[in-house]
Design a protein around this nucleic acid. Structure first.
Length: 552
RNA sequence: GCGCCAGUAGCUCAGGUGGAUAGAGCAACGGCCUUCUAAGCCGUAGGUCGAAGGUUCGAGUCCUUCCUGGCGCGCCA
């Protein structure tokens, strides 16, 4: 929406230069924004202030020169005022707003910038090892990753969603041993339960299923049957949780392929060849100082097994090698350091580590009635993501997980999330959408002609109130918000925007009776406006993976 | 001790690239439905933006130091 006014500013600047009033060559670099205070107009520019130094003139004098040479052939600006230290406050014309609304309405993608066209991006998220059901913490990861992927797709990127699975590590062995121990218990044989084994009830259930299927045939089994059964069962559960949340992956990547392909050995050899490793105390170390880390890190343990970070480096090398322009890692705050090591490793290999973009999220706490809910496994309180979905529903889970900047700790208020009332921000936004649907239904019932198809500026002349323009302005902001959210990988911006847009809609709805307005053409014009607002709400909710109900 | 993140209204949190009188939602208080869904709206109250310095026309935003909380700093993953 700023584009056309920016052009006006550029031309006015040129005109002022041509008239010899201004001298600097530089293009205007100020910002144009919607002022927080509506009394400052529809759009405000600080360009006069940013030019002050170079022009060696007072900002207000520059602003005056610009206003005096305003080039606005299309009549987009209704008035231009100079305010405060040198702000240029523009009030825009009805004509401007009408053409903005037409542009938005005819745009299939609501004018969201498609800066990602031709770029391939991978988003890796969740990546939880199947040692138990997904937790609430995984939930934030899952929803964040999925929504980042949606944002990137929405801005034209070709996106792959990947789940990385450490099936080569110790964890999976412990899992198998845990099931074996429970299995032996079930068939009445004493077996020592592993010290660091997984104690959850789900392990026993898997063991029982094995008893049912095989009796005690597996009592002396030395292979991977326990592990395989556990992995399969738990993965099924994880997938079903993801399913409920509307999350699908394009690819599951197994760590062991990095071993079988020789990738891990090659990484090690390359680092050795570059003189970036050192053998010491029976282990192989990555030289921290030389790769930009604060200390040396073990790549291969003295046991001969790779430490977790080596396959991680190989994994990221693999990802970059698959030709992605960018690789996004969605990680909990406890993995920041590890990610730094991985990127240092990539740089050491001569790869462009800047193509790896971590999205870090802080931890989640649950509260109920102001009290923190302990997420302990022992008391069977709220541990799993499935439980959370059961209690508050998919829409609230997704919306709430996204309603904080990922860098901030997230306090998930169960009481609020389950409320089916106005207090609950999810319902607030959804209600705005449903309200518009209802209005259209009511219009049909009353036999009001509901405009169909693509609007033209002439259809909108009856929109002449500030209320109308404000709503248009809000709806038009969608494109900028989504663009910024996608660029910065910050879904929460969309959440806050939708709450603002919903508030504008509710305000508008309460203040203006839409149907039965006697001004000629206004009912139809406002239905066109609200139809577009509804499309924006639906698109925004869709980006978040939250439903946009017709009726509530 | 070192690193990363956070500290903004009673509570939970927004506040790209520095802009005008710092915002929203809960909670509190007072209003608005015989009329398109009151799951809504309007109003009141609530702040030394953790502290102190600095940078400049201008700082919640940038720099320095300090305080508080979370998370890391493993031959665990």
């Amino acid at each position: 929406m700023k584009g056309r006014i920016e052009e006006v500013l550029e031309r006015s600047l040129a005109a002022a230069r041509a008239a010899g009033v201004l001298s600097s060559e530089r293009a205007a670099s100020g910002t144009l924004e919607v002022p927080k205070d509506r009394s400052h107009g529809d759009l405000a520019s600080n360009v006069a202030m940013t030019m002050a130094k170079e022009e060696r003139k007072a900002p207000r004098a520059i602003a005056e020169a610009l206003v005096a040479h305003l080039v606005d052939p299309d009549g987009l600006i209704a008035s231009a005022e100079i305010a405060g230290p040198g702000f240029l406050n523009f009030r825009l014309s009805a004509r401007f707003w009408h053409s903005e609304l037409v542009d938005l309405a005819v745009s299939a993608d609501l004018r969201v910038p498609s800066f990602g066209v031709g770029r391939r991006v991978q988003v890796e998220f969740v990546s939880a090892n199947p040692t138990g059901p997904l937790t609430v913490g995984h939930g934030r990861n899952a929803v964040l990753g999925d929504t980042v992927a949606r944002l990137l797709s929405g801005t034209g990127h070709e996106v792959q969603r990947e789940y990385y699975f450490n099936n080569a590590g110790r964890q999976m062995k412990v899992l198998g041993d845990s099931v074996r121990a429970r299995y032996l218990e079930e068939i009445g044989r004493a077996g020592a339960f592993p010290e660091d084994g997984y104690q959850g009830e789900y392990i026993r259930e898997i063991a029982r299923a094995l008893v049912e299927a095989h009796g005690d045939d597996l009592a002396d089994h030395e292979g991977t049957a326990f592990r395989d059964a556990a992995e399969k069962a738990i993965f099924e559960e994880i997938r079903s949780t993801q399913d409920r949340l509307g999350i699908e992956f394009d690819n599951y990547f197994n760590e062991d392929t990095l071993y079988s392909s020789g990738a891990i050995d090659r990484v090690l050899e390359t680092l050795e060849a570059k003189g970036l490793v050192e053998k010491r105390e029976g282990a192989v170390w990555l030289k921290g100082e030389e790769v930009g880390l604060d200390k040396d890190r073990v790549l291969v343990k003295s046991s001969g097994e790779p430490a977790y970070r080596l396959p991680d480096i190989a994994y990221h090398e693999n990802k970059l090698g698959r030709g992605f322009d960018e690789v996004v890692d969605v990680l909990g705050a406890d993995h920041i350091e590890e990610n730094r090591e991985v990127r240092a490793g990539l740089a050491a290999l001569g790869l462009d580590a800047a193509r790896v973009r971590p999205v870090i999220y802080q931890f989640v706490t649950l509260t109920r009635n102001g009290e923190q809910v302990k997420m302990s496994t022992r008391r069977a309180e709220f541990v799993t993501l499935d439980d959370l979905v059961d209690e508050v529903g998919v829409d609230a889970v997704r919306f709430f997980f996204l309603s904080r900047k990922s860098d901030s700790h997230l306090e998930f208020d169960l009481e609020l999330a389950r409320k089916r009332s106005t207090d609950n921000p999810v319902y607030y936004v959804q209600y705005a959408h449903a309200r518009i649907s209802n209005l259209f239904a009511e219009a049909e019932r009353q036999g009001v002609a509901v405009p169909k198809g693509v609007p033209a500026v002439d259809d909108l002349v009856a929109l002449e109130a500030d209320d109308d323009f404000e709503l248009i302005s809000q709806a038009c902001a969608y494109a900028d918000v989504v663009g910024l959210a996608a660029r910065e990988l910050e879904p929460h911006r969309v959440v806050f925007y939708l709450q603002d847009l919903a508030a504008s809609l509710h305000r508008f709805y309460n203040k203006n009776r839409i149907l039965g307005d006697e001004a000629p053409g206004r009912v139809q014009a406002r239905l066109l406006l609200l139809g577009t607002v509804q499309r924006v709400l639906a698109a925004g909710l869709g980006l978040l993976g939250v439903s946009a109900p017709e009726r509530m």
